[in-house]
Amino acid sequence: MSAETTAHVEHEPDLSRYTLWQDGEPVGLADYRVVGQEMQFTHTEVNPAKRDHGLASILVEQALDDVRTRTNLTVVAACPFVAEWINTHAEYQDLLSRGR
């Protein structure tokens, strides 16, 4: 079974984060803060024992999909991983400039 079929992301607005779950356990997170009309992704991490399986990409993709469908906020990729992920996924680059 692939990581993609067993992993899912939950938005936890009270904690200002998206949490990645796999097999009923949290294995990663993407922290953010909302400042004005911006959602600033500040930190992303995946449990070291679970790295190299594409989980961080699943986390970022699902978090950005949620931002796109649920808000009109502009994404600020303060986290280097999020910045690099968006840089290599052209279909998400519009999130960096919308609302401006």
Rank of each mutant, 00 (worst) to 15 (best):
M1P: 01
S2V: 00
S2W: 05
S2M: 07
S2Q: 07
S2G: 01
S2I: 07
A3K: 03
A3P: 06
A3F: 00
T5C: 03
T6E: 11
T6L: 11
V9M: 06
V9Y: 04
E10D: 13
E10R: 12
H11G: 00
H11V: 00
E12W: 09
E12Y: 05
P13C: 07
P13R: 05
D14P: 00
D14L: 09
D14Q: 11
L15S: 07
S16C: 13
S16Q: 12
Y18D: 04
Y18W: 06
L20N: 02
W21L: 06
W21E: 02
W21P: 04
Q22M: 07
D23G: 05
D23V: 05
G24N: 10
P26W: 08
P26V: 13
P26S: 13
V27H: 04
V27Q: 00
G28K: 10
G28I: 08
L29Y: 09
L29N: 03
L29G: 00
A30P: 00
A30G: 08
D31A: 14
Y32C: 11
R33P: 08
V34K: 07
V35I: 15
Q37D: 15
M39C: 15
F41N: 03
F41C: 08
H43M: 12
H43N: 12
T44V: 09
E45A: 12
E45Y: 00
E45Q: 11
E45I: 09
V46N: 06
N47Q: 14
N47I: 05
P48N: 11
A49Q: 12
H53L: 12
L55F: 01
L55V: 03
S57Q: 07
S57Y: 01
S57A: 09
I58W: 04
I58Y: 02
L59S: 04
V60C: 05
E61D: 08
E61P: 03
E61L: 05
E61N: 07
Q62I: 04
A63E: 03
L64T: 08
D65G: 05
D65P: 02
R68N: 07
R70W: 02
R70E: 10
T71H: 02
T71I: 01
T74C: 13
T74D: 01
V75T: 06
V75R: 05
V75S: 02
V76E: 01
A78D: 08
A78L: 09
C79S: 09
C79A: 08
C79E: 07
P80G: 06
V82D: 05
V82L: 10
E84D: 15
E84C: 11
W85G: 11
I86A: 12
N87W: 13
N87P: 11
N87M: 14
T88C: 12
H89A: 12
H89N: 15
A90L: 14
E91Y: 11
D94K: 11
L96C: 14
R98L: 13
G99T: 13
G99R: 10
R100K: 13
